[in-house]
Design a protein around this nucleic acid. Sequence first.
RNA 1: GCCCUUGUGGCGGAAUCGGUAGACGCGUUGGACUUAAAAUCCAAUCGGGGUUCUCCCUCGGUGCCAGUUCAAGUCUGGCCAAGGGCACCA
Length: 825
Amino acid sequence: MKESYFPQEIEKKWQKIWEDNKAFHTPDNSDKPKYYALSMFPYPSGKLHMGHVRNYTITDVIARFKKMQGYNVLHPIGWDSFGLPAENAAMQHGADPAKWTDENIAYMTKQLKMLGLSYDWEREVTTCKPDYYKWTQWLFIQLFKKGLAYKKEAAVNWCEHCGTVLANEQVIDGKCWRCDNVVEKRYLSQWFFKITDYAERLLEDLDKLKGWGDNVKTMQANWIGKSKGAIFRFKVKEIEGLEVPVYTTRPDTVHGITYLVVAPEYKDIEKLTTAENKQAVEEYRANARKMSEIERLSTERIKTGVPLGTHCINPFTGEEFPLWTADYALVEYGTGAVMAVPAHDTRDFDFAKKYNLPIKVVIQNPENPSDCKDAAYTEEGILVNSNEFNGMKNTEAKEAITQKAVNEGFGEFKTQYRLRDWLISRQRYWGAPIPVVYCDKCGIVPEKEENLPVMLPTDVDFSVVGKSPITTSKTFEETTCPICGGKAKREMDTMDTFVCSSWYYLRYSDPKNTNLPFSKELVDNWLPVDQYVGGIEHAILHLLYSRFFTKALKDLGLLSFDEPFKNLLTQGMVLKDGSKMSKSKGNTVDPDEIFENYGADTARLFILSDSPPARDFDWSDAGVEGCYKFLNRVWRLVSDNQNNITKDYNLVFPLTRENDDLVRTVHMAIKGITNDIANDFQFNTVISKYRELTNAIYDWRGKKSDFSAEDKNVLSFAIISLIKLMAPVTVHMSEEIWHDLGYRSSIHSEKWCEWDDNLAKASKITLVVQVNGKVKDKIEADEGVNDEELKAIALSSEKIKELTAGKEIVKMIVVPKKLVNIVIK
RNA sequence: GCCCUUGUGGCGGAAUCGGUAGACGCGUUGGACUUAAAAUCCAAUCGGGGUUCUCCCUCGGUGCCAGUUCAAGUCUGGCCAAGGGCACCA
């Protein structure tokens, strides 16, 4: 064994051996129970960043730990390789997106291997390869046949910078999630997945996800946005047979309506506008169209609107009230029309104040009645001015009033969701083509399954501006109809990359299947994912889409489970000097440099050491240095003592006192480390326990001048246990030391260390003696003493005698083997 | 406005059940080794006060204010702050 630690040499050597031996290949058939550990797969952007390093290290340690615990572990990796950056590179540098992507994958693969990750490379999946996107297209067709994929004309989010539409989930604060440019509304015919059909199940099943954090679950619940209320239909006074339906969560306030608002884009708005009001309404609508989404949705903005000139009748009161249009009503939500009750809604109140509309109070707090002249009353209360409902609690009136509307035929109970259907078509080249053709005779027709994949054309011109490069292909658009065989045109849009990433974790179970995206047997065998690890930024997007896909594929009979990810760990960001690492701030740390200077084991150890995985992690050069020093310290511990370490050690009890203590310390470390990993993967405390154990062995060693046979056995036990406990983290160093100690097989196939509960505790206890809850003394006692003996020991302490002299002892509380509290008066 | 998460030394963070607050590390300070440096090792390190001063005693302390309890970082109620999510969603 070398005297000094040379990580670069060791790491290269073992990486090659593991690769040559296919050490991390996972068989489908095994007697062992399965465990599926998964990191969110990367976009091949070019180089790994520290966020990747953290993500993959966490999952790798979990995978290796579970393997040592006796599981058949599936730990795959792949590439989310469709998407705009490849296409932008093509446009800027004239590169071929496929080639650009391949080169990035090659480089990043090299980096992943340098990190010593235990991937089964035979299961690698790349979403931009035809053998993968064939099945993305096939799944699209299955969804289409089920009515879950459909095309419609709709107001959609358009990003001018990216030249494509976006899903609602990809618009953050009115801006594009990728380029941060302001998104505008356009009316376009686009492909959607009917995720709204699954709104209730997606919401309800969140309760099943015990292994997910509440933050992610509430984000999803908010996004789905379920609310319960009522639909009321109001007859229009001036137009026979025309009704305006509204959705409200406050049916209890229906007697307080003083006007009604429809969105500027409301479908019947032209019919509802009188000739005198037409010009003003048209102007208002034109203005609303021009406004950006951000401006329009700003809650800061003063509300505006114009009257339409027509009126509705409130069937509960017979009162007439005017119709207005105002852009605070949203066409996409509810019915696009709102009943306005200014007395009990702050938005309606502001609007009524501005336009001098009447305010009618119908809910009151009997203790402290308000006339609602200065502000809306939005709390609970008792109904007034509400005919037969007067005196009823408003919470009860909600149901009673809706029931009346149901009975009389002008309303119903209604549950409403905010979730909209998922817009999946993109006007871009580098994505999976939507496998659909347009035939003049047969209409919209899916491509025949045996013709899949619909290949991306390669004869395209990336220099075009203002349209998708795919439209420049001379071969792509013209095709024949799969039904009638006549001339037909292909769909020119490709799919959102989030479609590709919504099922990749299923493909890993059966990555080479050429007949199906995966066999039902294998997917049911491996899934659900036991531990998924990734960034919080996917809390809604990817995780919601994947849950939807799983449920839809279950309904299609392709698999048998309805949630894909049993446990989810959302790791925190990697920061430097308190802020997120980014190129623009110039505070990035290049993983390559760390590997080169310190080795992957140091990088792995450090990125796990300072913070629990879910929290943000502050990268510091001093911290890396500290971890490197620790590894050197461990190395020296072994190399300085190698003559006294034997792999065939044999502990014979009883041991001498000091040796007994060290053996107990090792057992405590095994127990503590195992429990810390089981308890939400607290790797930071795991690593502190590596250090404690190392310190304990050094202390023990410092007291020895020569070694007895027993000493050698105990030292061997301690050091070999330490190396094994560290193996999931410092994968190369542990393997090297293991072999230096004479073992032939890989440490990573070893069984995880076990502890004996009788030994995983100190032989002596420190009895804490409190008087009235304050610590007054600490006394060493034997581990086996009972409660009565502890009381006696406590009372025999000189200090305690002094403090209790002349006082009455009211009672004594004993915490077994720990503490005695003496209560005195 | 609503929802979620988090508040502990100079810093990152420990502390299964309510039972010794500050593990482990970083930083800092002092020391050993060395011609010197690097590396390594040893020691100290929450604050106030006291003292017979390398020992030791005492009071306070986990965002704030109350409460429950023999005992609260931990439980309950009410606040405050930071981060994140949603938001003219009727």
